[in-house]
Design a protein around this nucleic acid. Structure first.
Lengths: 216, 216
DNA sequence: GAATTAATTGAACGTTCGTTTTATTATCTC
DNA sequence: GAGATAATAAAACGAACGTTCAATTAATTC
């Protein structure tokens, strides 16, 4: 046989991407075979090569578009206001929402970096660094304004990102907590972690601890 | 050829374990071939099967021993005192020290879970849960005693563990920060994150923020 | 020093892998 | 409706995979 009735390149390519994200997230890039992916899409393995020249090209495409999406999402969510606390709150909310919504793609982008060629790895890491740089800028501004109290901006940024991204490891939609409950809790943990002063944060509710400290 | 002069089963097995941890951490379990591992040890692939019946047995052994080591380390480090803040400080210090010292093994234990059979996965996860339960108990005790201020004990525990374990992603020995500097900073971030009250923590230096809150 | 055991080699097994090639059919263009 | 093109199937490629087996030699035992 050959071309099947109703076959459409765009639809097939989209189906390949979607199936690939799911399979790689579940099995790992190395463990997923092209035949397995093709079967999931309902196609022969050879057909995949019409859309992606190699298996690694497929992986790289998924990762690059994930990172581009993350940077775009932050570009849209970034508040105009200069208030560091509000900017930090927006960063946290955007980060958690984006990563929960794309758990599988995030898993792939975080776990399969070692399967990229050196050049492509560099490309992905460059995007990641640009994204992290945004957080460091917020923390630095907040520390200089005396609103935050961070011992080490770089280290705090890494700790926050690890903490937030870690949500995808245990979060399952429809279980005990909703996305907004998780986000609220993470927001207040973040504000406490950076030592945010009261009233400085418009989006987050008052962090709470300082009131009790005063009461001591 | 056959048995080589000076060959010793115990030494070879230890060399296999060590090389396997390094290779799996760098390449991933699926991407590492038994021939590659054998070459690293300086032996033929067939020789590996004298010590580990299958590739998965090797992986499982590495993971199980890593988790056993973690539980033992905490058993030794656990303070006798009942003070939740001191216990939390001990947990953080032990966790970071253990994971930095065994970065590669931690990487393997965290990243290659999906390559285990269902039964063995359950076994490893049981150990991991037992370890995390210790942290939840500390947080609960601290919250009940009014020393900590945690919105959600389970969620806080996950956030803390992700944050702390994340150290191995970026930490490189001999770079900008020493282990003790990293530990100190993470300890103070932890204490702020859980909203620890001043003076409650014997091991950590005063967390700092409350003093300024009082000064407001 | 002969017998036994421990440690390893080298070659091979069947399977699966990513990928390529060729042929075939559906759809689109005019 | 003929010709061009897009989308796929089917089969095959060589290479690499985990693993097994028989042979061989070093070390140990008595």
């Amino acid at each position: 046989m050959a071309r099947t009735t109703g076959s459409d390149g765009e639809k097939t390519e989209a189906a390949v991407r979607e199936a690939a994200v799911g399979l790689i997230a579940r099995l790992g890039y190395e463990a997923m075979s092209m035949r397995q992916l093709a079967a999931e899409v309902g196609v022969q393995a050879a057909a995949l090569y019409r859309y992606f020249p190699t298996k690694e090209d497929l992986l790289f495409t998924l990762m690059r578009e994930h990172m581009e999406g993350l940077l775009e999402a932050w570009d849209d969510a970034r508040p105009a206001a200069a208030d560091p606390a509000a900017r930090l709150a927006a960063y946290v909310e955007n980060h958690i929402a984006f990563h929960i919504e794309r758990r599988h793609a995030t898993h792939v982008s975080n776990m399969e970096l070692r399967s990229l060629s050196h050049e492509r790895l560099t490309q992905i890491l460059k995007m990641r660094t640009a994204y992290e740089k945004e957080l460091r800028a917020i923390l630095r501004d907040g520390a200089e304004a005396g609103i935050f109290e961070t011992d080490d901006v770089g280290l705090t940024a890494m700790a926050l990102i690890q903490m937030m991204t870690g949500v995808i490891v245990w979060f399952r939609p429809g279980e005990r907590l909703s996305i907004s409950e998780v986000t609220t809790t993470y927001l207040s943990m973040t504000m406490r972690l950076v030592g945010a002063k009261i009233g400085a944060c418009s989006a987050a509710r008052p962090v709470g601890r300082a009131t009790e400290a005063v009461a001591l």
